[in-house]
Design a protein around this nucleic acid. Structure first.
Lengths: 341, 341
DNA sequence: CTAAAAAACGAAAACGTTTTAGAATAAATT
DNA sequence: AATTTATTCTAAAACGTTTTCGTTTTTTAG
């Protein structure tokens, strides 16, 4: 590997001059800059990020923290898309992305914060994780720039999907299609779930819909088994719903299976809707009605704001950034107006 | 940040002794080791990876190279699962994972190799990319330890899914279910596709099945539009197939849509099978018949072998590692034996 | 008790950068 | 021509480690 020392020798200038030339500092003449750069290319010089990081305390490296337990890591459609967009964005700004080691089984394991410091990460994005975990809190409370996705901490940048509006739009659409008996199988307890549930109730109230207690069920996200059984329970009710909302698209398919197993058709006999807008939902007939979360924007904004915080700590305003989703009508919610009214 | 210097001062020993104590070298007494470690914990000391990397030329950091153009990056189900498994494995060995910046739009952009050197990556895994790309070849030909996934270079470690056996198993199964008129819509030209096509023909020949030329079509991977149209063409044939194989599961759904649009049922009227074994396929009725690729094993073996190559360059045998997939019968291939024979 | 061998420790150089403070040179002002 | 000012350059320290080699201390052997 050719270093600055070699380059300096080849150019007959000092190491300092080489460094400044390459970093486009003002106190080196245009002529020498030109010469150094040419020579650098010639010799195939490339900087050493470790040395640079050691000196500057900046690694140009951004971490992403998430747990990848069963179904909630890279293989999670929502997160994978957010991450993809996040990566794209930081790459344009010449940052690299490292997935921070979250293996807790390892012997000499460090906390998330220790790991981030150890690697000299300039910042870290946190997603898909238990935000009550003391280690997560330790990291968030540290001096390392941080952005959280779909969760809000005080005084930290957060990018969240607008679940309140999303659920409102969804319920309103279902309502407009004539449905008044709307069941909701919600996910496990997270701030996202809470936002959706509360928005569900609020919207129903505003629309004058009464929601019987047994229309509200719970199943884990992406748990088709769970939604299958809850759906069966809903269908067994003496007064079953005409439309069922699911925790997410994936889980929705479990519900559809249950419905079909009962010899009912979607959407002719019963309507359903998911949440997320996963790709496959638009490629299977009938196309699943859902709220398409704007993962591209979520990832991009998380990246942009994190970088801004890294590069301009003082001038960055800290506030949650809310990204709206979009109703995807699909064809699993039937218009029952002519029948109902 | 507390450094070794601080730690040395607190322990009343030299910096060298601290370093050796923490690295468990032999020439420091058990007593001092104990003492240094205790003090380290007390002061919250943590090493600095940049400094360590600078000295040792080892970063304990492994790169993953893939392009994330439309549908082929993190959001690609197969790759996401492989990556997930890969990450898990290297984390157990205390490596971190960085996704190497593959943005070519950036101004002062480096080649993949330059980037890998710049970051001091100990090794890199390559997947989901154009393996003919000169930059990829440059990287593979370099001295950096490398493992390729689903592609074989000479003298490099490769982990590949057994597409020959997979396709053979699939065709054989379909054959056993009584099908003799089997169409195959294959993916775009890659070594994976070639393996599958050739295995398809070989198996058919061995089974004594004749494959009319117009039973073979082409559509991009994951392209439901493409498979939709090719399927329509197949259905329009004077002597249409009884079973259609698709490039992958996702694309298969496009085919199913076409079939249903024609008023035909899967699998009663026509059978279909995919390839990959994506999760959703097992959660939608009818469950898609497919070859489930062992992404867990592929990722793990890629990681293990790459690490072995990094840590024991001499003793590592270089050869392709072939990972078998598994037939997932599902329910989209109908047993037509009683009818046919 | 002494000499030799073994064990434990430390000084200092090195890894490849950035940066500060000052030196040399050139240009501008009296 | 002498002085100031601006420009361009360099020497050297520093970042936090690892490692070599030499020095000191302890142990063992005679």
């Amino acid at each position: 590997m050719v270093s600055m020392k070699d380059l300096a020798a080849a150019c007959n200038v000092s190491i300092a001059t080489v460094s400044k030339a390459l970093n486009d500092q003002h106190d080196v003449s245009a002529k020498t800059k030109e010469m150094v750069r040419k020579k650098a290319k010639e010799l195939g010089y490339f900087p050493n990020s470790a040395a640079k990081a050691l000196k500057t305390n900046r690694s140009h490296n951004i971490g992403v923290l998430f747990v990848d337990e069963a179904q909630s890591g890279l293989t999670h459609d929502f997160f994978a898309n957010v991450l993809d967009s996040f990566k794209r964005t930081i790459e344009l700004r010449d940052y690299d992305l490292t997935l921070v080691n979250c293996s807790k089984t390892h012997s000499g394991s460090m906390t998330y914060l220790e790991r981030a410091r150890y690697r000299g990460l300039d910042g870290v994005a946190i997603a898909c994780i238990d935000f009550k975990d003391p280690e997560v809190i330790e990291l968030v409370d540290s001096s390392i720039p941080v952005v959280t996705i779909d969760y809000i901490f005080n005084n930290r940048i957060a990018v969240i999907s607008d679940n309140v509006k999303g659920m409102r739009d969804l319920v309103t659409y279902v309502y407009e299609m004539g449905h008044r008996k709307i069941a909701y199988i919600h996910g496990n307890d997270t701030s996202v779930t809470q936002a959706r549930i509360s928005s569900f109730y609020t919207t129903c109230t505003q629309l004058g819909i009464e929601v019987p207690e047994d229309y509200i069920k719970r199943a884990d996200y992406r748990d088709t088994e769970g939604t299958y059984h809850r759906t069966m329970e809903l269908l067994d009710l003496s007064d079953p719903p005409t439309c069922i909302l699911y925790p997410d698209d994936f889980a929705g398919f479990g519900g559809i299976n249950a419905i079909r197993e009962r010899g009912l058709r979607v959407p002719e006999d019963i309507s359903v809707a998911g949440y997320d807008g996963i790709r496959i939902g638009r490629h299977i007939e009938p196309k699943l009605t859902t709220i398409r979360q704007d993962t591209e924007s979520i990832g991009r904004q998380a990246a942009e704001n994190l970088i801004r915080l890294i590069e301009h700590p003082r001038s960055t305003i800290i506030r949650p950034i809310v990204v709206e989703g979009e109703l995807y009508k699909g064809s699993t919610v039937k218009d029952i107006n002519r029948i109902a009214e």
